[in-house]
Design a binder for these strands. Sequence first.
DNA 1: TATGCGTGGTA
DNA 2: TTACCAAGCAT
Length: 339
Amino acid sequence: MTSKIDISERLIKWHSSFGRHDLPWQKNKNPYHVWISEIMLQQTQVNTVIPYFEKFIKQFPNIAALANTDEDQILSYWSGLGYYSRARNIYAAAQSIKNLHNGKFPEDYDDIVNLPGIGRSTAGAILAFSFNKKYAILDANVKRVLLRFFAIEEPVNKTKTIKRLWSISDSILPNQNISTYTQAIMDLGATVCKRSNPKCVDCPLNDGCLARKNNASSRIPVKNKSKDKPVKYSQFYIYEYNKRFFLIKNTKTKIWSQLWLPPTEPIFQEKLNRDDLKILKTGERSCTFSHFKLSYKYTHIHLCKEPNDNSFGLWFDFIDLTEVGLPAPIKKLLTELSN
DNA sequence: TATGCGTGGTA
DNA sequence: TTACCAAGCAT
C-alpha cells in the first residue's frame, strides 16, 4: 500500500508515462522562463497562460530585456490575464535583479522569496525546476492531493491547515528528481485528482488514499462558505475622435490599477458645442470579480472636433488597442465599438 | 488573520 | 444562470 514514504517514488514513475512534458516553459527550464511561467500560473490555469507566456517571452527574451522596458509595456502584454499586480511586481523584480544581483537570477531561497510577487510556493517551484534544489511547493493541486490522501477535512483556507499542509509537503519530498516530482504532483492534481469527478482508478496513489477509502473525495477539500458579493456601479464615457479612443491611466490602487480606462465622467460634454458631439450608442454590462460585481453603463460619443485640454489622458488608435494595458471587459467593449 | 486582487472554464 | 474555482501573494 502506498505510504507517505513512497508517494514521491510512485509519482515520479507515473509522470514518465502520464505527466505533462510539452508545456512551453518546460522546453528551457532556465530561471527566467520558470519565473515568468510561475507568476502567470498563479491562480490561473495552464491553457489560459500558454499564449500569454509565448508572446511575453518573444517580446522579452531575457531579464535584461525586461529590466530595460517600462511597466506600461509589461502591462500591455499582461492585458486580459488578470491580477495585474503580478505584472507590476515582475517589473519591480526585474529592477531588483538588475540592481542587486547584477542582472542574474538569484539561486538562494531567501534572495528569491524577497523578490516582489514571489512567495514561498513560487520560490520553491523556481528552485525545484531551475536549480533542482529540494524545496516544496503548495499550490491548489498539491493541497488537493494531500488533503485527500490524508483525508484532512479541515477548511483549506485556515492558517492552521495551510501550516499542516506545508509540513506534509516538505516531509514527502524526494532526495532526487525534485523537478520531476514537483511537476508530477501538480499534474496528478490537474488531470487525475481533479476538483470534481477525480479519476481514482488512474491514480498511482489510490491504494493508500484515505479519502478514497472513506469515500470522502467529493467533500475534500472542505471550504468555508463564501460571502455574497456586493454590487458596485460605474459609468464609462467612450469618446471617439478620428478613429481614436480617449483613455486615462487608472492611478487608483484598487481594481485595474495602472491600466488604461475610458473616463468615468462626461469630461468633454461641457467643453464642446452640442453640434460637435454625437451619441452613437449606450448600453449596460457587468463583470464579476472574486469579491464584487461591477455593473457599468457606457456611452459611446463621437466627437467632430478635438477638445482643447486633453493632457490628462491619451488618444489611442483603434489598431493600437492590443498594445495597451486594458482590462479584458474594456478591451472587448472598445473592440466591438470600433467595428 | 482575513481580505483584495481578474479572468475564463466548468458543473 | 449562478456559483465555484485555478501553478498565490501582499498587506
